[in-house]
């Protein structure tokens, strides 16, 4: 429950496993981002057994569109401990068509982020190698 926090010295070796999500975020990091499409064309993200829009259980992995568009964002000045070293940072929701993603915007001044900004999505681990667990997170790069 407190998996995102506790800091690097939390002793837990990273957040708890989240099968489905973990594979999804690893794929995003490898440039193989995907989403789940139901037989009626609704998009969703794993782990899923059923489409949250139409109850279809026929879900297939489809490539995530390469470019998204920021629909809203905020520059955060007060963060939870896991992000304490990074404030201020910008978190945004970006629309990729069949799905929207939430991520940290990097590589651009906060003042340059605006609704409509075109971004690509990947995933990084800011503490790569510091412990056994993955803390990969969704990040957006302006494109």
């Amino acid at each position: 429950m407190s998996g995102s926090g506790g800091g690097a010295d939390g002793g837990g070796g990273g957040p708890p496993r989240a099968t489905g999500y973990d594979e999804w975020v690893e794929a995003l990091a490898a440039g193989q981002g995907f989403y789940l499409a139901c037989s009626n064309g609704h998009g969703s993200l794993p782990p899923r057994r059923v489409c949250p829009d139409c109850e279809s259980r026929d879900l297939s992995e489809e490539p995530l569109p390469e470019a998204g568009e920021v629909v809203t964002f905020s520059e955060l000045h007060v963060a939870a401990p896991a992000f304490a070293d990074e404030t201020p940072y910008v978190t945004a929701i970006a629309d990729f068509g069949p799905v929207r993603l939430t991520g940290v915007v990097r590589g651009v001044d906060a003042d340059a982020v605006d609704v409509g900004l075109a971004v690509g999505a990947t995933a990084t681990d800011p503490r790569e190698g510091t412990d056994g667990g993955s803390r990969r997170r969704v990040v957006f790069d302006p494109r």
Partner: peptide
């Protein structure tokens, strides 16, 4: 999908 992306 939210907290790990920095959402408070």
């Amino acid at each position: 999908f939210e907290v790990r992306a920095g959402v408070t």
